[in-house]
Structure formats: C-alpha cells, structure tokens
Design a binder for these strands. Structure first.
Lengths: 141, 141
DNA sequence: ACCTGTTTTAAAATCATTCTAAACTATTGA
DNA sequence: TCAATAGTTTAGAATGATTTTAAAACAGGT
C-alpha cells in the first residue's frame, strides 16, 4: 500500500478487491460515507458534504459512486419516496422508520421489528429481499 | 342523480362527497380503475388504457386525478422504484410482492404475511402506516 | 341561458438521474 | 521513470416522470 492507501484506510483495499480503482474521489466519498457511523444520504446531500470538505466532486461522479458502492455491497438503496433515492451505509439486515414530515430515515434496531409469517413467493420466483418501512409523523398531543 | 350518475354508479356520489366534481374524465378514470378488481397502475398505464377506451385524457389530468383519488382514500400509492409511482386500487391493509424483473406489483393476501413485533416509534412520533415489500425475482432452477 | 368557480389541457418548467464525449488519471510493463 | 492503455471524472446535454402555468372548457347553481 502506498501513502494514499494508508491515509484512506480500509476503503483502499475494498475498492481494489471490487475491481474499482481507488481514485481520489471514490476514496474521499468513502471517507465521508463510512467514517461517521450509520448514515442515510441522498446524492445531493453527499455532494453538499464533499463541497463542505473542500473536495470538488461532480454530481455525475456522486451518482456513479453511490451506484457502484451499492453494487459491491457497501451501500444499500432505500426507496421511500417517489423521485428521491436514499443510500444507507448500514448493509446489515434491518428495516426503517421514515419520518414523513422531515423526509428523514432512521434504522430500526435489530429485534425491534420481527416478521411472523413470511409469505410463499409466487410460483417460479424466489425472495430477494424484504423491505419494511414504518412511516411515522409527529404525534399530535 | 342524473343519467350520468346512473351510468357511472357509485363513483358519482363518492366524488361528490369528497368535494370533487364528478367530471367526465374523473368518472371515466374511476371506471377504468375500479371496475376490474384490484389493480396496480402507473400514470402512463392508465393513460394508455383511457386512450384504448376512446377517452382522451391529458397526462396532467391523469396525475391530478390519481393524486386526488389517493388523498380521498380511493387509492394508495406504493413506492418501490425510484422514479416511478404505482397506485393500488386495494386500500385495505395489505402488503406487496414486487417482481424486480418485470416491475410488476402483486398483493400479498391477508394473513400470508404477519408482523411479529412492531417497534415503538421514536419519541414524539406516531405510526402512520407500515409498508412491506417482498422483492422477488425469477428463481434459478 | 348566465355567472362563477372548477377543471382540463397543451405546453413549458422542474427535478432527480443518466448519458455523452472529451479531458484526465491510475496502473502496468518496458 | 515513462509511455501506453484502460478506467474515471467531468461539464453539459439528454431523459423521464411529474408538476406548474395560463388559457380555454365545463359543471353547478341561479
């Protein structure tokens, strides 16, 4: 590993192993995404953060990177609203609260939600994934 | 009720009660949507159907109508893919299979899926709705 | 039939996302 | 170390779904 590799930590090798060149922008975005625990970001948000961190990364690259990271299993895409995609840095099996008013996602911890019966998939299909979204709004009290 | 009312059945009064004028296009779309059992349609699909049925309805009206019907509880919006909205004529409490390859939705019947533990919503919020999407793809065999 | 407020419409606008083609950069092997 | 090559990034154009706009058409009451 060279000095860049040391500076960026694990991301460097993860990218190499996935066959993605560890470029400046991919490493920088990886750092923003993974250095602060579990997060849910949109492309726009991530660009705002990279700008704030003095990295100039085009929106096209943000989208490419988010999609590539999703493909190699570093991120998971969560669809809750038409016309906006969230990317979740937590790829473990879990589900979400979605705050309708603030448009914010929040992980539901481990056993807090449990599926009783899982349905038989239709003939000739197999289950790929189960997404549960608990939509919440501010309680009126 | 006038002759138009009779011709379009229940929809006529439902719209009036919701404060929506029972116009030709709203009644026609209601007929397409509700006369053939449970359905999942996109705006484009509904327009194709109305064209096929010799009703000219603009896309803008299709969108307006789908949104209005959703607001008054005649439809339910299901979000499964970024950038495409499905409207479900079944507003009863139920969940969905989503076929990733064909982009088709299918209702999961009644008790086939059961939630064991339902999580406590975050402080100050109340649960609005729970959406479960079981994503399936063609089985490899 | 007439008035007034709704509704519909075509067309333009918007928004998130993807594509394109050219400029740039990482990697490899000499 | 350097050049060749293949993979990346980028600005800007293109796309596709949806919403907005402003004007024309219409529904319901008088």
């Amino acid at each position: 590993m060279n000095s860049a590799g040391r500076r960026y930590g694990r991301a460097y090798e993860i990218l190499r192993e996935a066959g993605l060149r560890p470029t400046r922008q991919r490493l920088g975005l990886a750092r923003l995404l993974f250095e602060n625990g579990d997060r849910h970001v949109t492309a726009e948000q991530l660009q705002a953060e990279s700008t704030a961190a003095d990295m100039r990364v085009s929106l096209a690259t943000i989208y490419n990177t988010l999609n590539q990271f999703t493909q190699i299993g570093l991120l998971r895409e969560v669809v809750v609203e038409p016309g906006r995609s969230y990317f979740d840095t937590n790829t473990a099996d879990h589900h979400h609260f979605f705050h309708e008013e603030t448009a914010k996602l929040q992980d539901i911890e481990g056993e807090a939600i449990v599926l009783g019966a899982v349905p038989e998939p239709p003939e000739g299909t197999s289950v790929e994934r189960i997404d549960i979204i608990v939509r919440v709004k501010n309680a009126v009290n």
